[in-house]
Amino acid sequence: MSRVPSPPPPAEMSSGPVAESWCYTQIKVVKFSYMWTINNFSFCREEMGEVIKSSTFSSGANDKLKWCLRVNPKGLDEESKDYLSLYLLLVSCPKSEVRAKFKFSILNAKGEETKAMESQRAYRFVQGKDWGFKKFIRRDFLLDEANGLLPDDKLTLFCEVSVVQDSVNISGQNTMNMVKVPECRLADELGGLWENSRFTDCCLCVAGQEFQAHKAILAARSPVFSAMFEHEMEESKKNRVEINDVEPEVFKEMMCFIYTGKAPNLDKMADDLLAAADKYALERLKVMCEDALCSNLSVENAAEILILADLHSADQLKTQAVDFINYHASDVLETSGWKSMVVSHPHLVAEAYRSLASAQCPFLGPPRKRLKQS
């Protein structure tokens, strides 16, 4: 649940008159999402009104509101027999009622949201009550392989729920002597030191190019640089560091992050930047690179990204790559990247197969709970 924001200063709310007192009302909304995959969808019983329910879910471990999704594969009634019906059901509720908006969509073979439908307002739910769409999607369109909505005969539904909580009022009075504290510009100011090479005390040599930097900042941000300058190493004695395995453009992006906490060109060089972040123990930059690479996972590059993640101990990226390969196994196994990995990294192939087997055979063990970014 997000923290209630402070109200904007009255002088910034309007260029008009300023009242002596004010009130700011925040209506709290808890948002969460749920993904439900139905394997072997074409084998569902086709009687009209037949119901399939998901397991229950909530916004978190401490949330007492429990929900589930309900599907009628062949419609709810005679009117909707040519459609799939989809509903959000409130299973248990400690209150007399709650209000919530919802959005349903289908994830296609690429994991993209399609055929989205959402409620136009927050509906009133009581325990045992459901709301949804009797005519969510035509069955003939859903079952047509050309539309790519049932890869490997799996129907994957994605649901986003927004639950309306209580409202909170914050009130106060205006004073004539309003003090406005300026925003912190530390990142910009440190970035200026790097860009202008002011007050530098060490030189970093990268592929024949020299960059002036500040030992204190490098040591504070990177345990690797800290070790170089702290001990009686040649880098500490000469205040000069030779860097041979990072390209200059990648190095500059890494230094921008060290000084400012930002990497504006990360998406263009996420793979190389991940390697640099791993070498210099820049954990936050490493996770930022993992996130960017996750966003660009595809059938063509899944094997290469899995190898990269394994090489640099990028655990979150590795998990996402394995899950992606499992979901698109029939396509990924035909790529040149996968065939190369079979020869060069057989242990990763074995890991992917083990994960695929456990996903398809849940009876082999208890269900695993899916539970950071600093």
Rank of each mutant, 00 (worst) to 15 (best):
N244H: 03
T260A: 03
Y123D: 01
L69G: 13
S80T: 07
V332D: 00
E247A: 12
M288I: 07
D153N: 07
P73L: 02
F133I: 03
A207C: 11
D166Y: 14
R138I: 13
R198K: 14
V51E: 06
K252T: 02
N108F: 14
K103A: 03
A213F: 13
L155H: 03
Q209N: 11
Y34C: 05
C203A: 14
C159V: 14
P366E: 10
R368A: 15
F136G: 01
C93L: 03
F41G: 04
L193T: 09
S85V: 14
Q165R: 07
G365L: 15
C294N: 08
L218G: 00
M1C: 00
L65V: 15
S54C: 02
Q173T: 03
I325Y: 01
E235Q: 06
A350I: 06
L282K: 01
R185H: 09
F251G: 09
R99T: 15
L186K: 06
I106Q: 03
A270N: 09
P7M: 06
H345K: 06
T56I: 01
E118S: 13
A216S: 02
K154F: 15
G111C: 01
G16N: 11
V241S: 06
Q360L: 14
F32Q: 08
E290D: 12
P366A: 13
K31N: 07
D82R: 10
G148L: 04
Y87E: 00
R99S: 15
L306I: 06
F32C: 14
Y280C: 01
L150H: 02
D153C: 11
C256Y: 04
A219Q: 10
K134S: 01
E230I: 15
K134E: 04
W338F: 10
T335S: 10
I170G: 06
I38G: 00
S336L: 09
V91Q: 13
Y280M: 10
G128W: 03
L107R: 14
S96P: 11
L69K: 03
P264V: 12
V206F: 13
S355H: 10
D152C: 12
V299G: 03
A100T: 12
S96M: 11
D152E: 06
E47Y: 03
G60E: 02
T25A: 01
V164Y: 13
G148Q: 07
L317Y: 00
F32E: 11
E79N: 14
V126S: 15
I305P: 00
G16S: 04
C361S: 14
L308W: 04
D331L: 10
K286E: 02
E234L: 12
C184E: 10
V206Q: 12
S226F: 13
R121Q: 07
L107K: 14
A357N: 06
N196H: 02
N147E: 07
C361P: 09
Q26V: 12
